[in-house]
Amino acid sequence: MAERLRADLVLEYPFTRTTGPVIGAFLTGLREGIILGIRRPDGTVLCPPTEYDPESSEPLTDLVEVGPGGELLSWTWVDPPRSQSPWDQPHGLGLIRLDGADTPMVHGLLVDGPEGLSVGMRVTARWRPEREGHIADLKGFVPEGADQ
């Protein structure tokens, strides 16, 4: 029997994506410490914002500030953290509907354990001190009133 051969294969690349005006504005907001949504013709607000309406595909342009507080619509617990993610500790992952937005966004939940999470709880944004315009400028969300 011949030797079974194997080798590590790592595919790695620092993709740099141009953002266009809407994604760029959202990321600019994160860098400046605010969260933006975008208004649809029916007045509802998408967060995170897309350049287009998810149903009609027509352009959207009216960016509005939302959050930083919101409601946790769903959660799970990630332990161990995934190696490429921005988190190096076990953490929650949640669907968070920010105040002023009508759709939830996916982001991390910074609590000690899953027992600290429940659907319907109020959460609020926590920011990284150094921000560059990236979704991970938002460190994640913590229970409202938590003194972190």
Binding site: D8, L9, V10, L11, E12, Y13, P14, F15, T16, R17, T18, T19, P21, I23, G24, A25, L27, T28, R31, Q84, G133, H134
Partner: peptide, 12 residues
Amino acid sequence: PVRSVRTPIRLE
């Protein structure tokens, strides 16, 4: 304004 974002990928 932010015009670009770095989103590296590493897959093993």
